[in-house]
């Protein structure tokens, strides 16, 4: 559903409207995630380590609020776009423009490589201070590598 809501390649406004409607569904999931994050923030405030509880509570509350506000904003924006045929065409062209898509793909690729390097460095440093952080980062680095390998095989067969 997420893939169809964000990565669909459509060639006409009628199909694009369907994609936008699916996207609204995903925004409601984001809204729910925001509420859950906000709830976590509230629950963290009752932790037994006050300075850590306050910090984590603040982080979760902030992230939860951003998710909720973003989801609501995007839902309104998509609904407003759906009422205007000219805007639908403009948004479709802007989103599916091949140059824009190439820019996004290259940016994600570069960010992915830099993230992997930074995570690896963080993993090395974390190993000296905290084993839990070390294993969390280890899972992230390995998970990233596995996902890349799987997707590479998938796209190799598909294309």
């Amino acid at each position: 559903m997420i893939v169809k809501a964000f990565l669909s390649q459509v060639t006409n406004d009628k199909d694009y409207k369907v994609v936008l409607k699916k996207r609204i569904g995903f925004m409601y999931i984001l809204l729910f995630l925001g509420l859950v994050t906000l709830l976590f923030g509230f629950l963290f405030s009752f932790g037994d380590k006050p300075h850590l509880s306050d910090f984590l509570s603040g982080v979760y509350a902030g992230v939860g609020t951003v998710l909720i506000v973003s989801a609501i904003g995007l839902i309104f924006r998509i609904k407003r776009t759906l009422k205007d045929e000219v805007k639908i065409k403009q948004e479709r062209i802007k989103e599916q423009d091949e140059r824009n898509q190439t820019i996004i793909q290259k940016s994600i690729y570069s960010a992915g490589i830099v993230s992997m390097i930074l995570m690896y460095i963080a993993l090395m440093i974390a190993g000296i201070f905290n084993i839990v952080v070390f294993w969390t980062l280890w899972v992230l680095v390995m998970g990233n590598a596995i996902v890349y390998s799987v997707m590479y095989l998938y796209y190799s067969k598909k294309m």
Binding site: I93, D97, N100
Partner: peptide
């Protein structure tokens, strides 16, 4: 608009 890309492209 005719070829379905942005002006920037």
């Amino acid at each position: 608009i005719s070829v379905d890309v942005t002006r920037q492209t």
